[in-house]
Design a protein around this nucleic acid. Sequence first.
DNA 1: GATGAATGAGCCTTCATTCAT
DNA 2: TATGAATGAAGGCTCATTCAT
Lengths: 191, 191, 191, 191
Amino acid sequence: MVRLKTEDKREAILKATLLLVNSNGFHAAPMSKIATNAGVSAGTIYLYFQNKEDLVNTLYRELKAKFSGHALYGFNPEAPVKKGFEVIWNNILRYKLSEPDEATFIEQCDNTPMVTDASREVGLKAVQPLYDLWERGQQEGIIKPLCRPMLYAFSLFPMIYVAGIYTKEGKELSREAIDAAFGASWDAIRT
Amino acid sequence: MVRLKTEDKREAILKATLLLVNSNGFHAAPMSKIATNAGVSAGTIYLYFQNKEDLVNTLYRELKAKFSGHALYGFNPEAPVKKGFEVIWNNILRYKLSEPDEATFIEQCDNTPMVTDASREVGLKAVQPLYDLWERGQQEGIIKPLCRPMLYAFSLFPMIYVAGIYTKEGKELSREAIDAAFGASWDAIRT
Amino acid sequence: MVRLKTEDKREAILKATLLLVNSNGFHAAPMSKIATNAGVSAGTIYLYFQNKEDLVNTLYRELKAKFSGHALYGFNPEAPVKKGFEVIWNNILRYKLSEPDEATFIEQCDNTPMVTDASREVGLKAVQPLYDLWERGQQEGIIKPLCRPMLYAFSLFPMIYVAGIYTKEGKELSREAIDAAFGASWDAIRT
Amino acid sequence: MVRLKTEDKREAILKATLLLVNSNGFHAAPMSKIATNAGVSAGTIYLYFQNKEDLVNTLYRELKAKFSGHALYGFNPEAPVKKGFEVIWNNILRYKLSEPDEATFIEQCDNTPMVTDASREVGLKAVQPLYDLWERGQQEGIIKPLCRPMLYAFSLFPMIYVAGIYTKEGKELSREAIDAAFGASWDAIRT
DNA sequence: GATGAATGAGCCTTCATTCAT
DNA sequence: TATGAATGAAGGCTCATTCAT
């Protein structure tokens, strides 16, 4: 095993955690296996993370942050509402499809008590621009007067879910399917 | 501890499992604790279930079956498409709101390797009438030509997700909110 | 399951124990399985035997007694030493070959702490006539002046061992092989 | 408790297993007790052995190997048949008497399903020189034309059995008794 | 006598975490 | 920093035995 530099070790540990958890759930990711797969000693993990919970939460937060970064890429807050929504919608879909491992991990974490509520909220802040966009759309009478969770549930959540299914089964999402999905998302929330 | 009759014990074990898993995930539901909470000895569980996996899967299947029963209550296959969809949509929502524990458990199970694929597929068969309904709607040109997973993702999944959030936070879903949610669901899939 | 009479139940339990222990050792013979195989309830065993140890020891003693009965069949204490020895030797061999299950069980028991020393000694008393025969042979100068355990070890034990091997492998012992074996047995202890 | 070095721990675990199994059979040798007696934590055993079966089989194989080494010590394949046999016979007896614990353990293992057939066969290969010796003896007309298991059963098995008895009862085997036993062994198989 | 549901101690094994090196 | 042997609590499961029916 090649000797890794400090930063690389931290990354290797995070990567090993990601893959192991994805492959069979938290149940299949003991610290010892994470260490082995990361090419690192068991004790070493504790030099970089306080404990397993910290390791998982750290990974979760980093991925969420990365995800948020992608989501707003090229987004212009002043563009028309539908246009802005389309940009973010596509960004998110593209991320889910191009980084299926990370997407899977985030989903896994959304259903485990190992990830704290504090961690879960971290990602939300970054989406503020999206909230602002919806609000503007509502003021302009373009978007249905639904509460935030509902807007999310009807316009982004379904797409994320569908992307997960296709990824899991190894299928491709065709251009037509994607357009149709966007149509459904938009129809759900537009007035 | 009052002596329970056989059938009651089985039920008590299932109930204890449900609550324990809901409260903190599978991690927080060791057989010993399930036994204690069910007012039963650890060994007794194995009189009713082969092992932990069997216990969880049995519970999952029973709840899925119950859920399916509710979903189609009062559904008339020959009614107009929108009407039929509305009936099922409301049935599901009502179930999610009235049996939040069961709903939460089913969600937990959808993300654990402890539940087998075989178990997961059991529930799907019961929804055939819904699939038929969608198909009829597509033939009549009323429903968008989306694949099944997408139809599900846009019309039922969001509502289930929202109901979960409200339940978790102890809030009530107002009549208006429900109507609005149905509107969004229908708009998402109708042409 | 046909209803058995009291005596039959006792026998059925003993028989089930014998077969189960033989098939895979004591490890594979839990009381519950013995009960099932005997067509009897678990609790019933305790009507006939104090506990598992008692059950096994009782079976062991009965088999030993039966074995002893066979060993001396047709034996004439006044016949010539070699003739007498030959009768007993052949009796034992015949028993081992005709009742391989019982023979196997006895061997199993000779190596488990479940069978008490008291039980082990039970069988020995019955062989007193054999001891007397050897003693007479020694007085007559026909038999080597070895201690009893040695006489047993060289003249009967090997044959029992060999019979066990042939039985286990399902082979037949030919007449010639038997004669040869007797020759070796006799040569070992005769002067 | 003094801190042992790695190799010592492995040995301590094996030794504890040996003694515990000998004292009361496998039934009396739970992993927890083995650990305690070895001055080691329960989990530590699993650093050196995969599981209980592996532990027992490893010990069995090591003892068998050691035994085989002793058996052929000083054996000259070209010496006269009787001389060669005498050497091996005495080697084995000496081992049985000087290492009674190991001898007892091997016997215990020969009757438990915990020891795999693969393990049992390991020891047999080492005895090839003895088989060759017997064959030469038969060709020279010195040894009876018996099959291998019989030769073993009549010439070595009895002695092992007797040694076990004496050891168990704490008695000494006198020089005369040993000589007499060898005489019986040799008489049994020689022509 | 007979049943079999119920018990609970005990077994094997895993794994997060520590600490001497 | 880094290691990895060591720990020991905890988990899932089995099974001899009891007892209300």
